[in-house]
Nucleic acid binder design. Structure first.
Length: 532
RNA sequence: GAGGAUGUAGCUCAGUAGGUAGAGCAACGGCCUUUUAAGCCGUGGGUCCUGGGUUCGAGUCCCAGCAUCCUCACCA
């Protein structure tokens, strides 16, 4: 590190600011590539097209009086050629003070090397930020998972695929927002700090407001506030909402996560199924539809290279490791206009309409019991090691469902009509009080979304919130919220409501195995000894 | 919360049987005007996760702890 400080100070001694300043008229490395392509250069040619680029030096080769850098910016990278003869002695002295990881600006002309690599031949080099820490090794990059999350900024500039994931995440959220706005929804923001939590079954985080001397909860869901807006006459609302649940961490759970939650007056849960399909289609069009074919093209390039250099066996291994077969299937399906992605080696077809399957029918198929046959349900649960003691029947049924059915829900599927007792905020089937008009959307065995025909009868709502269902954790119980019930007493239109997990949607559409791969800064314990 | 795995140089990793701590990349010095993980010669760089213990001697064996990952549990 000291060596780097010495070079930084040497730059300052040359009268230059090692931390730069404004550097105007920069074009991206991608722009340089498209300009370069249009110039139609032969190997060894130099054009007279002058450009300014800026970025981080990620590869550096100096040989005597000639040097090549690879400069990375937000969109890609480009090779910089630096020759002492072109730059002059002062600039060359500066070049020798540059290290991997430094951020520089380069003004130069577009050309090609003898080996046909597009290159910006530098005329003027400007230091924009000297790095005091070296970037990770150029070949393996940063692969230590712990470090990748703790120093996500390094992960992002060292591993371009990581940046791609978060770029796609941004595009997907934008597309979801556009879809909903196009359906006349209004985007709203409701409290994160809530005096009372509700809208989901989860343990909350607690906090405290000093001046009011009042305990508050971080929201586990925006549901009860969004429904108040329905009462207020905002007929179609949505919120892209960060929720906080004080529970276990896993590859599918982060304590804070993002959901899009929406409510539509005069609709029901069938309409919400269409909304799921619509949002996923929009997100797909903004990401996988173009990203996946490009990914396949890259994989096939790599495959050909391996075949030539290392033989068929190595190529075969590579193809299997990267699930190339599923990717090709998805690429071909996309060409046919289908919404197909790949997750964990399996091609998933998101093309609407998704299959709609009844909860009770799935239980019959996979657990082999009828949902109405209490004895059979209990027997099956016991056989699977689920202890039915102190649990309401609906909870046992749900445990059974999770143990037997969920792992079969690979292709995108709507499961609908849940046991009413585990759905305190859901309207009952008018023909069967034990059934709640609710569905969950599944894909790759993950719960992607959850929706209801919303309960708007205030008296039933009050009763549901007061009624304790046994078998679920005490703290995750629905909490009585009198203000919310009072809102319903003013009259809430019948409505469909829906929540879709954005993080999981991004996982599915980017083939990311862990939720931490799609959250920029997932929660980690602080490390005892920090830094260098 | 339970089980398993991992923790060694800035990064990626070796470390044999318990006997002075290693490689590649990065960095420093030298040579080098077309490199593609550039090359060659040389140099510097370590709290072997932490704390105990066994031993003449511990990166290595034992105990405890910490962090991360995976599986399970919890969690719609």
């Amino acid at each position: 590190m000291d060596q780097r400080r010495i070079k930084r100070d040497a730059v300052a001694d040359m009268g230059l600011d090692p931390y730069g300043g404004r550097y105007a008229h920069v074009v991206s490395t991608q722009d340089v590539r498209s300009t370069g392509a249009s110039l139609d250069l032969a190997p060894g040619d130099k054009s007279d097209a002058s450009v300014r680029v800026a970025g981080r030096i990620m590869l550096l080769r100096v040989m005597g009086k000639l040097a090549f850098f690879r400069l990375h910016d937000g969109e890609g990278h480009i090779q910089i050629g630096l020759s002492r003869a072109d730059l002059g002695d002062d600039q060359w002295l500066l070049v020798k003070k540059l290290l991997l990881g430094d951020i520089i600006g380069v003004e130069g002309i577009i050309g090609k090397t003898r080996t046909d690599e597009l290159t910006v031949w530098a005329r003027q080099v400007t230091v924009l930020s000297k790095a005091l820490r070296a970037p990770p090794e150029k070949w393996h990059g940063l692969s230590d998972v712990d470090l990748r999350y703790r120093r996500r900024y390094v992960d992002l500039f060292a591993n371009p695929q990581v940046r791609d994931v978060f770029r796609l995440r941004s595009s997907m959220i934008h597309a979801v927002r556009q879809y909903l706005v196009g359906e006349c929804y209004v985007e709203v923001e409701t409290p994160v700090l809530q005096p009372m939590y509700g809208g989901a079954a989860a343990r909350p985080f607690t906090t405290h407001h000093n001046t009011l001397d009042m305990d508050l909860f971080l929201r586990i869901s925006p549901e009860l506030y969004l429904k108040r807006l329905l009462v207020g006459g905002m007929d179609r609302v949505f919120e892209i909402s960060r929720n906080f649940r004080n529970e276990g961490i896993s590859t599918k759970h982060n304590p804070e996560f993002t959901m899009v939650e929406l409510y539509e007056a005069y609709a029901d849960y069938h309409v919400m199924m269409e909304r799921v399909e619509g949002m996923v289609a929009a997100a797909f069009a903004a990401s996988t539809k173009t990203a996946l074919p490009m990914q396949v093209a890259r994989l096939e390039d790599e495959l050909r290279r391996l075949q030539e250099e290392k033989g068929e066996a190595a190529a075969q291994e590579f193809a299997e490791e990267h699930h190339l077969e599923a990717y090709r299937e998805a690429r071909d399906a996309i060409k046919q206009g289908r919404l197909m992605g790949v997750y964990n080696g399996v091609a998933l077809d998101f093309t609407p309409p998704w299959p709609r399957l009844k909860y009770a029918d799935l239980l019959q198929t996979h657990a082999g019991v009828s949902i109405t046959d209490r004895a059979a349900v209990h027997a099956k649960a016991k056989a699977l090691g689920i202890d039915p003691a102190n649990k309401a029947d609906a909870v046992i049924i749900n445990d059974l469902f999770e143990a037997t059915v969920e792992r079969h829900l690979i292709q995108p599927t709507f499961v609908y009509d849940y046991p009413a007792a585990i759905c305190p905020l859901t309207r009952r089937d008018p023909n069967d009080a034990l059934i709640a008009l609710r569905f969950e959307a599944f894909a790759a065995t993950m719960e992607l979304g959850n929706a209801y025909s919303e309960l708007n009868d205030p008296d039933i709502q009050r009763e549901n919130l007061l009624h304790k269902i046994t078998g679920e954790g005490d703290e995750t119980m629905a909490v009585m919220d009198e203000d919310f019930v009072m809102a319903l007493e003013y009259g809430m239109p019948p409505a469909g409501g829906l929540g879709v997990g954005i993080d999981r949607l991004v996982m599915l559409l980017t083939d990311s195995p862990s939720i931490r791969d799609v959250i920029l800064f997932p929660l980690q314990r602080p490390q005892a000894s920090g830094g260098s």
